[in-house]
Structure formats: C-alpha cells, structure tokens
C-alpha cells in the first residue's frame, strides 16, 4: 500500500506491506532507530512516539494507519545546534536513564504527558508512565526528571523554546 507520513517534519511516500508496524517503518524505512522494541504486547512503551502530538506505542500502530499523519520521534527533540530539549536536559540532570533502551520512549511519553498536564504531581507522573517500563532506574530518577522538566516548563521556558511543553506537542 502507498502511504505518506510526515516524520519529524519531513514527508515521504512509501509502498509498504499492510502488516508493517509503525515502529518497523520508522526504523527500517526512515532510519530512525531510537525507538526500540521491548515486547510483543504493547506493554513496555520502549517504542513510544508522538502521533499528531499524542504519545502512542508505535508497535501497536500499523504504518498504514499513520498514513496522512505526523509522527514525531525523539530524534527531533534537540535543537540543530545540539542543545537538548528541556525534557532531555531534565533526564540528564536527574540521571533518569542508565542503559538507555527505554529512554527514547520514556522521553516521548514525558513530552506527551507534559503537553496534556504541564504540572503533574508525583502520583500523576507515575500513573502516566505506567505503560513505560524501565528495568534500571527503579523509576525514581525518571519521576524526578519528569517533575523537574515540568518545573522548568512552568518557570518560563516558552512554547517556542520548549516544543512539547505547555500544550504544544
């Protein structure tokens, strides 16, 4: 099937098998391999990306379902000069990653969360990330990173400087 998907602002048309998963499409067809595949059951969230600004597990979306839509992956977050997005900065500052496998999905889930709820409580953060597994951090520093990113967002990082925070994903 022919599909046209805008990924990180770039539109491309491809002819794909109907059963092709979005995560495989991103990894194999668009060479964007940050999103990882951690399970077969939509449980772990390592493949989380934004679809029209909403976080989705890209292992549970068929590439053909994304036809005509916009996908954002973690590769697009940092500025061209390498400056990290506030969520990325917070993850680094709070040591919210170890092996890194869950990180791209965790960061995109966080961006999605903060766009819907810019000032979550710790409990809200934990519930929002329930579908994103991490085996290394015990979630402690991930939660701190999300709360720190939320604080940074409310402390004046405007929507332009911090895409994904403050209602703009």
């Amino acid at each position: 099937m022919q599909i046209t998907i805008t990924v990180n602002g770039q539109s491309q048309t491809d002819d794909v098998e109907p059963r092709l998963l979005l995560v495989h499409y991103l990894r194999e067809w668009r060479d964007l391999r940050a999103a990882n595949i951690g399970c077969d059951t939509t449980s772990c969230g390592a493949c989380t990306v934004l679809l029209d600004g909403q976080s989705v597990k890209s292992c549970t979306v068929l590439a053909v379902q994304a036809d005509g839509h916009a996908v954002q992956t973690v590769e697009s977050l940092a500025a061209d000069d390498g400056e990290l997005h506030p969520v990325q900065q917070a993850f680094r500052q709070e040591h919210g990653l170890q092996c890194g496998f869950c990180t791209p999905g965790m960061i995109m889930a966080t961006v999605g969360l903060l766009s819907e709820n810019p000032a979550p409580t710790e409990r809200e953060v934990r519930e929002a990330l329930e579908g994103n597994y991490c085996r290394c951090t015990g979630y402690h520093n991930i939660v701190r990173a999300v709360l720190a990113a939320a604080d940074a967002g409310s402390d004046g990082a405007d929507a332009e400087a911090a895409p994904g925070i403050g209602g703009r994903a």
């Binding site: 391999r33 940050a34 999103a35 990882n36 973690v74 590769e75 977050l77 940092a78 390498g82 990290l84 990325q88 993850f91 680094r92 990653l97 092996c99 890194g100 496998f101 990180t103 791209p104 960061i107």
Partner: peptide, 10 residues
Amino acid sequence: EDPKFMTTGG
C-alpha cells in the same frame, strides 16, 4: 553517555 541515548538513541 547521556546525550547519545537521548537524541539518536543507543
């Protein structure tokens, strides 16, 4: 190590 894991991924 972090910037790589958070930008292009490991």
